[in-house]
Design a protein around this nucleic acid. Structure first.
Lengths: 197, 197
DNA sequence: CTCCTATGTGAATTTATATTCACAATATAA
DNA sequence: TTATATTGTGAATATAAATTCACATAGGAG
């Protein structure tokens, strides 16, 4: 019975929960599974998280970090707006393929009254992400690469639309649908369509 | 204790379940709620459906019908491919706004091992829908309206991307995000981009 | 080394649901 | 009208999980 300080345990638990969701989905996320994966007993989880719900919020945080760090990385690699978008798309595709949990977490239905707050949190994460996209698009408009007659928010949501429905199809079809190929083609079409004449 | 033949009851139950999901989400879908809404006692449900899971499949069927009848309606109204796509988009937007359950059902996470088959069914429904879209796009390519260099399947998925991410944002934000407005703008951009020169 | 606090344990509790079953009431055909 | 199949009822059963709690122990501070 090894003791580990709560700071570390919290990370282990959040990661274990994320992994559990990757494999077994939201419904498969239970304290017993997480505890086993961490190597402690179910009740031990409660030394570190007040409730299962709190663990979920830790997961939200992990996902948020992953998303935003992709944006940051792409922005470091290049200053060209179009190129930035392309890299974000590529990174995002990889992220989704490697972390199935992201889809599972965001596309679970949390309409339940007890989960009121989950959707707010999800919305905030996506909004923050989209705002970054909007900024990049605006840079592209400012430097004359991207058509100025297009609404930036609309484009940012459509940008999400390049990957999201395809990711869901991939998930539903057990990866029969080729996400990477779709994103490649869709980006080609999207990027040429937003270019200034 | 009014008796009603199972044929009718089944429809009542499926509809009640659909309504329940609209308001309370997938997690809020329980036999007690459905039974109360139908006006019978929980155990009575089992005279008509072998299990809760079977009810869900009845719901899948309802949704499938709604989706495909929209496509059929649009195709009756006009024979112009571009116009067809536009009407489908409009009908689909209304459908989603009026039947919140569709989002809830499709965007619930059914990775759980016991629900293996759900995703197959969902995938089949979406695939059928997308195939119709592909056909319409091909008509447009055949008559010279739509660019022939674009992959039709990619376009159909992207077409879905006009509405789907936006619908999710609307849902997550408690309808703060204006779905109708987004779809209008996005369609304008999308349709002009696919037009043959 | 000895306390003291943080962490881990196992059993018990609670809650929420689906599902079953024996029995009752209805409707329909004869 | 009566028999029979269908549908509805209420109580009981089964199961799955989250959560609590009293107790145990590790490990650093002093």
């Amino acid at each position: 019975m090894k003791k580990i300080i709560t700071e570390i345990r919290k990370e282990q638990i959040a990661q274990a929960a994320l992994d559990t969701i990757s494999v077994h989905g939201m419904k498969g996320l239970n304290i017993a599974n997480v505890a086993r994966k961490v190597g402690i007993v179910p009740s031990g989880i409660y030394r570190h998280f007040k409730s299962k719900e709190k663990i979920l919020y830790a997961i939200f945080d992990l996902i948020k970090q992953k998303l935003l760090s992709n944006v940051a990385l792409a922005c470091e690699q290049t200053s060209d707006p179009i190129e930035r978008l392309k890299r974000i798309l590529s990174l995002h595709t990889q992220l989704i393929l490697q972390n199935k949990s992201i889809l599972r977490v965001f596309f679970s239905d949390d309409t339940y009254s007890g989960y009121l707050h989950r959707n707010e949190t999800k919305y905030k994460i996506i909004s923050d992400y989209l705002n970054k996209i909007v900024e990049i698009i605006q840079q592209g408009q400012a430097n004359g690469q991207i058509r100025k007659d297009l609404d930036t928010q609309m484009l940012s949501v459509l940008f999400l639309g390049i990957i999201q429905p395809a990711a869901i199809l991939g998930h539903l079809s057990n990866e029969q649908f080729d996400l990477t190929k779709h994103v490649g083609k869709a980006w080609e079409f999207f990027s040429e369509s937003i270019l200034a004449a």
